[in-house]
């Protein structure tokens, strides 16, 4: 926040304050009505047992949390979600970094490549779910056909209908969709990398892997950690793509905390229980966000190339 010296005369300052309040008023009305009030209500729902109808629900203290801790459905959703967070973060980071390094320094056709790589990320997730459903189709799908073509016909399966593969099939789709985001951010970070240092390392006999580890990565580390945070935190609240592709099935194999919260609230009318789970998910993500953010800030302060 830049603080300007209030050199302006008092009349000007009063006029500025008046306009300032007038300009933020509509914004604040929106934020309070559609964000802060429902958020406060969410906290209230957690301590009562609201079923969506009864206007004066009974106070239940911490019962919702106790039930949450003992619910085997939550436990299995938590396991799936943990797998999702790990693979759904590492996958796009590796693939996005590889794409960014590959295109780095290439001039001809770079706009086309950038558009192609980033495209999946801007598509609506519902459409992505529909299209990948065809690719995973047991009989006609491209994945099984390609496997047969290369002599791996034994591996073919109904990817989304098989409880052993469904989670990983949806994850692969998510990795495909998210890599472009990581790519575009890391590419912009690579633009600021000092190429003289890389040339110097090359002259000193450092191979490509060493250059990446000791010269390039330290310079883009703050941005790398930031994009890690975003992908990781997004993994906690994953919903759209799972909901569309499998609805949490088959047999709960792809149930996530988010889809479980949704079906508790809107299919079983257990409003308070679903809200509690949604809030717990949000709070669980905070330590990760804060920790990574701290690390990022420390690295930025240390300067680059250290």
């Amino acid at each position: 926040m830049s603080r300007r010296v209030p050199s302006a005369p008092r009349a000007t300052r009063r006029a500025q304050a008046r306009l300032g309040i007038a300009l933020v008023a509509p914004l604040l009305v929106m934020v309070v009505t559609f964000f802060l009030v429902p958020l406060a209500n969410a906290v209230y729902y957690v301590f009562v047992d609201f079923n969506g109808i009864d206007p004066t629900p009974a106070f239940v203290g911490l019962d919702n949390f106790v039930e949450l801790a003992q619910d085997p459905g939550v436990r299995s959703a938590f396991r799936n979600n943990a797998v999702w967070i790990v693979i759904g973060t590492v996958g796009p980071l590796v693939l996005g970094l590889a794409l960014a390094l590959l295109i780095w320094g290439v001039r001809r056709g770079s706009l086309f490549y950038r558009v192609a790589f980033f495209m999946p990320y801007v598509l609506p997730q519902v459409a992505i779910g529909v299209i990948w459903g065809w690719i995973y189709d047991p009989t006609e799908g491209w994945l099984n056909r390609a496997l047969e073509l290369v002599g791996l016909g034994a591996l073919t399966t109904g990817w989304l209908g098989d409880p052993d593969t469904a989670l990983y099939a949806v994850l692969a789709t998510a990795v495909w969709a998210t890599s472009g985001f990581v790519f575009i951010i890391l590419l912009s970070a690579l633009r600021n990398v000092d190429t003289d240092l890389i040339d110097a390392a090359r002259l000193d006999g450092a191979n490509a892997g060493q250059r990446l580890r000791h010269v390039i990565m330290p310079q883009i580390m703050p941005v790398f950690l930031m994009v890690t945070t975003i992908t990781l935190v997004g993994g906690f609240a994953v919903f759209d793509i799972v909901f569309v592709m499998t609805g949490g099935g088959p047999a709960g194999a792809t149930e996530m905390l988010g889809t479980y919260a949704y079906s508790s609230a809107f299919e079983l009318n257990r409003i308070s229980y679903g809200t509690t789970l949604a809030l717990v998910i949000t709070v669980m993500a905070i330590p990760f966000a804060v920790g990574l953010n701290r690390l990022q800030r420390r690295l930025s302060l240390q300067g680059t190339g250290a």
Binding site: P38, A42, Y45, A237, T282
Partner: peptide
């Protein structure tokens, strides 16, 4: 910081 997810049900 707070995802839509956290308050979508009360909303």
């Amino acid at each position: 910081l707070v995802p839509f997810f956290a308050y979508m049900i009360p909303l």
